[in-house]
Amino acid sequence: MNIVVCVKQVIDPESPPSIFKIDAATNKAEMRGVPPVIDPYGEFAVEAALKVKEAKGGKITVISLGVKLSREVVKKPLAMGADELILLDDEAYVRGDSWSTATALAAAIQKIGEYDLILCGREASDTNAGQTGPGIAEILGLPCVTIARKIDVTDGSARIERVTSDGYDVIEVPIPAVITVSNEIGEPRYPTIKGIMTAKKIEPVIWKPADISLDASKVGTAGQRTRLKKLFQPVYEGKCEFAEGDSAEEAAANLALKLRESKIL
């Protein structure tokens, strides 16, 4: 079983909103003073891959696309138990949209050549789009199931539980297929000491656009089909009226009275 997992390096989405800042001149966002992380949904995809590998055996190849990716960050899937790491790391990939990103990832997957499952997070925590996985499926002509909470692989097909708003659907799909993974798959495992030591010894393979037979005009900003016009932080008035009291109980009763006064209750 050959499993490819696509992960992304992002600013830490678990950081408190108070340190989230936007540089208006460059339309770039940062979590001030906090290092980047592997996108949490990508980690769920790695976890899903490890579960399939445990059941069926095989090899997990992780691909990440970016510019000057932090080796420490992108090696985490290796420390969790993945086998190989391919980085599409080059200035040419800078500021792509989902079109140029999916194009490059699909080209890299084609170069890998052998794959049964391609896993992505259900969306990235920065763009919140969920477009790259289905996009890769379309480019490669593969079937696709999104928002998986369980993946069971049998001969030649995968049985997937897809999260819906009122439960889940059980879907069977022939493989190779693209599957995007949701948090319901279960908490990603922590890297073990042994895993971290192994990861240290694995050198990532670096592919520039020419290595995946892509012209520079197809990647990064040049390959975009969407333009970011503006990035801004919504402003909240912050007019919270606090109910107070000498004790928690008194404050609680005062809250109820306030709500009655405002005709909310």
Partner: peptide, 29 residues
């Protein structure tokens, strides 16, 4: 962060606040 978007709030341990709040709401209703 929740208080930035809340209209009304209480700062306190919910385990103490909520039972008292429920009690008062019951009485008011």
């Amino acid at each position: 962060n929740i208080f930035r978007q809340a209209r009304f709030g209480v700062v306190g341990d919910w385990k103490k606040v909520l039972p008292a709040f429920n009690e008062k709401v019951k009485e008011l209703l």
